[in-house]
């Protein structure tokens, strides 16, 4: 059985073996930065070496960092889950009802048109300094792509397949679970992958607007103390959070969509 081999982006995650060029490139860049920083041609406080980042993490205390990481991770995952669920729900409703689509579409687009950074202080003002404001932020940024992906996925469905099911006496519920949903899944997952990374952006921006913890809060503090090494280290930790959420979604996708037609097998 041939399976499509490709990139994370196109939906299939393969073994580390195929990722070594990317890993090697990252390693080379890290090494270059490290070596360049060690020449001290730019002061280390401004351009810290990679080893300085590790040191700053050690000095700050890994368990302290982990606590803030957990908070941001919780907010991001919860926000993503809510956003994905609501986004999917709105997408399905918009697909089934012209009326709802007409009502919801402008609202959905408007909600996305308000800059995230502008929304953050408002939400903090309304919801307070605790995790809820951040969860809502994360949900607000993740639901939009999921709604768009769901609607376009459902619309893309091959009418011949739905006709076939109807001809076999299936009701709309069966048509939905057996055809529409499955046909929409590739689009939905593409959107979920985008949303998974965005949700981290949402919760971090929320934390930076006012919070008593989380990576965003820690980042603000490190910027305040001009601890560039720590700031950079926190950015990397944030990236690793986004990356692991993305990877989880991609793995889930690979598990669920196992029928992808064997087209575009990477012979580009």
């Amino acid at each position: 059985m041939t399976r499509t081999k490709g990139s994370l982006i196109s939906g299939t995650l393969t073994t580390m073996k195929e990722w070594w060029p990317s890993v090697a490139l990252l390693g080379l860049l890290t090494l270059a930065v490290e070596l360049f920083a060690r020449t001290n041609s730019i002061p280390r406080v401004i351009l810290p070496a990679v080893s300085d980042l590790a040191a700053s993490i050690r000095n700050t205390g890994p368990s302290f960092l982990l606590r803030h990481f957990s908070m941001t991770a919780f907010e991001s995952v919860a926000g993503f889950a809510i956003g994905a669920g609501v986004g999917f729900g709105i997408g399905v409703m918009m697909y089934y009802s012209r009326f709802l689509e007409r009502i919801l579409y402008p609202i959905v687009v408007t909600s996305k048109a308000v800059p995230l950074v502008a929304m953050a202080p408002l939400l903090t003002f309304w919801l307070g300094y605790d995790v809820w404001a951040k969860i809502i932020m994360a949900a607000l940024v993740s639901y939009f792509p999921v709604t768009v992906g769901t609607v376009s996925g459902l619309k893309y469905v091959d009418q011949e397949l739905t006709d076939l099911l109807k001809s076999l006496g299936a009701d709309e519920r069966k048509v939905f679970t057996e055809v529409r949903l499955r046909a929409a899944l590739p689009n939905v997952f593409a959107a979920l992958k985008i949303a998974s990374v965005l949700s981290v952006v949402g919760s971090v921006v929320g934390e930076m607007a006012g919070s008593t913890g989380g990576l965003g809060y820690l980042l603000l503090a490190s910027i305040y103390y001009v601890d560039v090494a720590l700031s950079a280290a926190i950015c990397l930790v944030m990236a690793s959070l986004g990356l692991s959420m993305f990877t989880t979604v991609a793995l889930l996708e690979q598990k669920i969509i196992n029928w992808r037609p064997a087209v575009d097998t990477g012979n580009r």
């Binding site: 397949l161 055809v179 499955r182 969509i257 029928w259």
Partner: peptide, 21 residues
């Protein structure tokens, strides 16, 4: 056109009319 469900195996596709009922 063949109009088979791409996410179902050959056997499941053949059984589809019965499964729906």
């Amino acid at each position: 056109k063949p109009t088979l469900l791409p996410w179902r195996s050959v056997l499941e596709n053949v059984l589809l009319p019965l499964r729906i009922r």
